[in-house]
């Protein structure tokens, strides 16, 4: 592990974000100054499929910065329409977190100006999964069949964008799923013939479900590949922390640490962006 900072006594007095929220009574906001000493308070979405991976990366970042990582379990469980999400992100970042791991780094990332995304520490693809042994790619599925997509995911957006450019008979009927176990069950029982989901979600399904052994990843053709860049959120006001975390990520990508963690968790993809 490359340790590039001599910041053992780094005091992360990360100020409260003081973001103005239209949905939060002011009493909910903790505007006190956190005196974290050499502690890095790291939050996670405990419902995230890559929670364990994110934890390992956070520990590596903490080690690189000579900081003690203190885990603050974050949140999750939001409605599909995202109602309340920004409120809770802001509350968590203001009241509890120096760093929020496992965030999708994309132009659509729903963070306010009070928060900033770090650079990605991993990039992981969406995959097409089928049960039929005769199919080698998505394009082998008859167009009269149905497929499933992970609701509101980058993989789904990729499919919709592709499908909207073609006549309906040249596309599949697509059903959105928010429950990947259910989507898996529907692939296995033939209700849908394939599914497009994030590879770590498939990795978890393969670990958790005995009956998932018949599932196979096939090529995405004819749709183009899609992937999610994974990074973290910091408060915009704490530009020093953001800069140091970015440097740490660069170092962890360069020395192969992230790549090893990707392998450890059985993910496809690559370190960095």
């Amino acid at each position: 592990m490359r340790k590039f900072l001599t910041a053992a006594m780094l005091v992360l007095s990360s100020m409260a974000a003081q973001a103005q929220l239209s949905e939060v009574p002011p009493e909910e906001i903790d505007n006190s100054v956190r005196l974290s000493g050499d502690t890095l308070r790291v939050c996670f979405d405990r419902t995230s499929v890559i929670r364990a991976f994110d934890g390992d990366v956070a520990n590596a970042i903490g080690e690189a910065l000579f900081l003690t990582v203190e885990v603050q379990e974050g949140f999750g469980g939001f409605p599909l329409n995202g109602a309340g999400l920004l409120t809770e992100v802001t509350l968590a970042m203001t009241n509890s977190c120096d760093l929020f791991m496992g965030v999708s780094v994309s132009p659509n990332a729903p963070v306010s100006e009070a928060f900033t995304l770090t650079r990605p520490y991993a990039t992981i693809p969406f995959v097409t999964v089928v049960a039929n042994k005769d199919w080698q790619k998505l394009g082998d599925i008859p167009k009269t069949d149905r497929i499933g997509t992970a609701m509101a995911s980058m993989g789904e957006m990729n499919y919709i964008t592709w499908a909207r450019q073609r006549p309906k008979p040249e596309t599949w009927v697509r059903l959105p799923y928010a429950d990947f176990d259910l989507m898996t069950r529907r692939v296995l029982d033939g209700t849908i013939s394939g599914m497009i989901l994030w590879q770590p979600a498939l990795s978890k399904i393969l670990k958790d479900r005995e009956d998932a052994k018949d599932l196979r990843v096939v090529a995405n053709d004819p749709i183009p590949p899609s992937e999610t860049h994974v990074g973290a959120v910091v408060t915009t006001r704490n530009s020093f922390l953001r800069s140091e975390v970015d440097k740490a990520i660069d170092a962890l990508v360069a020395d192969g640490t992230i790549e090893k963690l990707i392998e450890k968790h059985g993910y496809q993809g690559r370190a960095g962006d």
């Binding site: 979405d45 419902t47 995230s48 499929v49 890559i50 999750g76 939001f78 409605p79 599909l80 329409n81 995202g82 999400l85 992100v89 496992g102 965030v103 999708s104 994309s106 659509n108 990332a109 729903p110 963070v111 992981i124 992970a150 609701m151 509101a152 995911s153 980058m154 789904e156 957006m157 928010a178 994030w198 770590p200 979600a201 999610t228 860049h229 994974v230």
Partner: peptide, 16 residues
């Protein structure tokens, strides 16, 4: 309409 993953892989929000 957007695809908005906040936590990577956990989509929550399909309209901006």
């Amino acid at each position: 309409p957007t695809q908005t993953e906040f936590t990577a892989g956990n989509a929550v929000g399909a309209t901006k």
